[in-house]
Design a protein around this nucleic acid. Structure first.
Lengths: 207, 207
DNA sequence: GTAGTTAATGAACATCTGTACAGTAAGTTT
DNA sequence: AAACTTACTGTACAGATGTTCATTAACTAC
């Protein structure tokens, strides 16, 4: 994270200090209520330094998340790094790794997702989850009739949905349980099920 | 939309003018660059009036979306309004209605989703998509092993994923096609498929 | 080590934000 | 129609934003 020697050490230091400052402030304050002045005050940097590197605080937080997402990608890919085919076995392993990754960064996921801070965080995570199969799997095309792009977007957001639900329960379940649930949902969808329309809905309708 | 006679007409008028003003400004400007001063200037209202009803511009946009989401709910429920059981048939119909609803409000979905404006819009849409089966279906529990909450969050975000993908293609497909794709994805997931790991990924790994 | 580059500083400025308050106008209730 | 209630206005103010610029300090490349 931020160790590229090609980048001026002063920039590395300033950015790192600003990130830490923001994360620190987010522990005690809503993202909304944190001003750029707050951030640079805690970082002990000039306000101009902030604007040299970022346009607004969202951009700073995005950069914090980029580091996290980089780890997500590595985690997901790890299980099929050394094999040539991707089957349900590799999928299981990848899925477990994803949930483990989220558990590892539980603090920051909680902070960011619960603070409603980043409009684009969802999109960034999904973009990666969407592209991973598209990039890594040569003949990825679930079946002839299925639109590849729609299917990966479906799948990516679905996993994000589980992550968000998980964060909202304050990580009530284990990463293994989450992975097992995802596989259960994918494999055992009872499509011929019959549900009863609940009375409360029907009654609500009789205005 | 906003016709409750219990609410003071002045409030109704002010809010409506502010909403129109914001939507109008969003046609030509990034949400980010629209100031509250801009909004009230175009609306020809005092700035204090804005703050009387909203804390910040995001809240105003949220209210715009609430009207849209109300229609989404009605659309989804329409197909099983007059039946007692919910099967794949009702699901198909509901799903078609959802995509038709999005197509009807294509302008505003495009405006809001592409402007990266609302952190919570995703969550609001998903909240509703999540709750609809939970509220309306009496014995909704896909199968014994599956966690109801996780499954509905999965499903809700998955559909949102398709909507977002659809918006990003500028509505390249028809609502019927979208519905058909969703059903295809749900029913025909080839879980025993085998994919080849692509060369580009494997080569990328040999740093 | 020196020269050249560029990041960080401090100060200054116009604009926007968020809040307050007294006065006016428009609504609702009886 | 009169009495009330409350939304909107105009003004004012302290603080935050976003930008600019000359100066100083730190880093890189040679």
């Amino acid at each position: 994270m931020n160790r590229d020697p090609a980048i001026d050490r002063r920039i590395r230091k300033s950015k790192k200090t600003l990130k830490n400052s923001l994360i620190s402030l987010m522990q005690s304050k809503d993202f909304r209520d944190i001003s750029i002045t707050d951030i640079v005050a805690l970082a002990d940097l000039n306000r101009g330094t902030f604007y040299k590197h970022y346009q607004y605080k969202e951009e700073l937080l995005e950069e914090v998340m980029e580091d996290v997402i980089a780890d997500l990608i590595i985690s997901y890919r790890e299980p099929y790094k050394h094999v040539d085919v991707f089957t349900i076995k590799e999928l299981s392993a990848s899925v477990i790794k994803i949930f483990e990754h989220v558990a590892n960064f539980a603090d920051i996921y909680t902070l960011v997702l619960k603070s409603n801070a980043l409009p684009t965080l969802h999109d960034r995570i999904c973009e990666e989850l969407k592209n991973l199969p598209l990039e890594d799997l040569e003949n990825y095309r679930p079946n002839r009739k299925i639109n590849k792009e729609l299917a990966s977007s479906y799948q990516a957001y679905a996993i994000l949905g589980m992550i968000i639900e998980w964060v909202n329960t304050d990580f009530e379940y284990s990463a293994d349980y989450m992975a097992q649930q995802l596989l259960e949902i994918i494999t055992n969808r009872p499509i011929d099920a019959v549900y009863k329309i609940s009375k409360t809905f029907k009654e609500g309708e009789l205005k």
